Amino acid sequence: MSERILVIEDEDAINDLICMNLEVAGYESQPFFDGKEAWEALAADHSYSCAVVDVMLPGLDGFALLPHLREYGIPVIFLTAKGDVNSKVRGLTAGAEDYIVKPFEMLELLVRIDKVLARRRPADARIRIRDVEIFPEERKVLKNGCEVYLKPMEFDCLMMFVRNRNKALTRSQLLSALWGVAFDGETRTVDAHVGRIRKKLGFQDVIRTIPRVGYRMEADAGTQEGGQDR
């Protein structure tokens, strides 16, 4: 069963874009465009793994909504145009897990969501792809029950694909997310890491090359998480 992400954002285009990318990445998304409506709906359904929340919302703003979300144990990532230090401090000290200022990169948001979810997953959570088992918390990979050594950056690169299944990732995006925006490297660095992951795990037909773009992990490659179908 997919993890459910609550998206509370009053700008239609941004809300739609976030939800679309979440769905492509293998999550379920539930959009709301009004803070009060989201708060009222929580009473009936609050089984969400995370919430992406704008601060400036009609009905009930993000800061006022935060304690209600925390009451149900839903971690919150603020995504807002309010980039002043006071707003950031207010949001984080009130209990938000993260604070992202618009404009934002969608890949960065997905990575931030994944980090929040990873902190809250059971320690024995695992991801299975065919004959490969991935244990994110332990940073361990097994193939047919035998441990396969992945270098730290290879493991991080693998997790980028796992958490963005069915989404084409460009080489530049991978360089930025894994090595940092200031990394002055060649795109062949990504190719080398992907090549080693494919060889070690037998993922030649799982991580597909997208000509002139980058790579994509196929969601129909038999992926399971926590023992349940994704």
Score class of each variant (00 low, 15 high):
Ala168Asn: 12
Glu147Pro: 15
Asn144Thr: 09
Val162Ser: 12
Tyr149His: 14
Tyr149Gly: 09
Thr170Gly: 03
Lys167Leu: 03
Tyr149Ala: 08
Lys200Tyr: 05
Arg163Asp: 01
Thr209Phe: 11
His193Asp: 12
Glu154Asp: 04
Cys157Leu: 04
Val190Thr: 07
Thr187Ala: 06
Gln204Cys: 05
Arg171Ser: 01
Trp179Ile: 02
Met159Trp: 02
Ile197Glu: 03
Leu174His: 14
Glu147Tyr: 04
Ala192Pro: 13
Asn166Thr: 02
Ala177Phe: 02
Gln204Gly: 13
Asn164Asp: 03
Arg171Gln: 04
Glu218Ala: 09
Ile210Tyr: 13
Tyr149Lys: 15
Cys157Phe: 04
Tyr215Ser: 13
Ser176Gly: 07
Ala182Tyr: 13
Gln204Leu: 08
Arg171Tyr: 02
Pro152Lys: 01
Asn164Ala: 06
Ser176Tyr: 05
Val141Ile: 02
Phe161Tyr: 06
Val213Arg: 11
Arg171Glu: 05
Gly195Phe: 09
Gly202Cys: 03
Ala168Pro: 15
Asn144Gln: 01
His193Met: 07
Lys143Pro: 10
Asp184Gly: 15
Arg198Val: 11
Val141Glu: 02
Leu174Cys: 01
Phe183Lys: 12
Ser176Leu: 09
Asp184Met: 12
Arg196Pro: 13
Tyr215Cys: 06
Glu186Ala: 14
Val194Trp: 09
Gly145Trp: 01
Arg188Phe: 03
Gly185Glu: 09
Thr187Cys: 02
Val162Ile: 00
Asn144Trp: 01
Arg198Lys: 13
Val190Phe: 03
Val141Asp: 11
His193Trp: 06
Asp205Lys: 15
Arg165Asn: 00
Leu169Tyr: 02
Leu178Trp: 01
Asp205Asn: 12
Gly214Cys: 11
Arg171Met: 01
Arg188Val: 14
Ser172Gln: 13
Arg163Pro: 07
Leu174Gly: 00
Leu150Phe: 10
Leu169Glu: 00
Glu218Ser: 13
Thr170Met: 12
Lys151Gly: 09
Gly180Leu: 06
Gly145Lys: 09
Cys146Tyr: 15
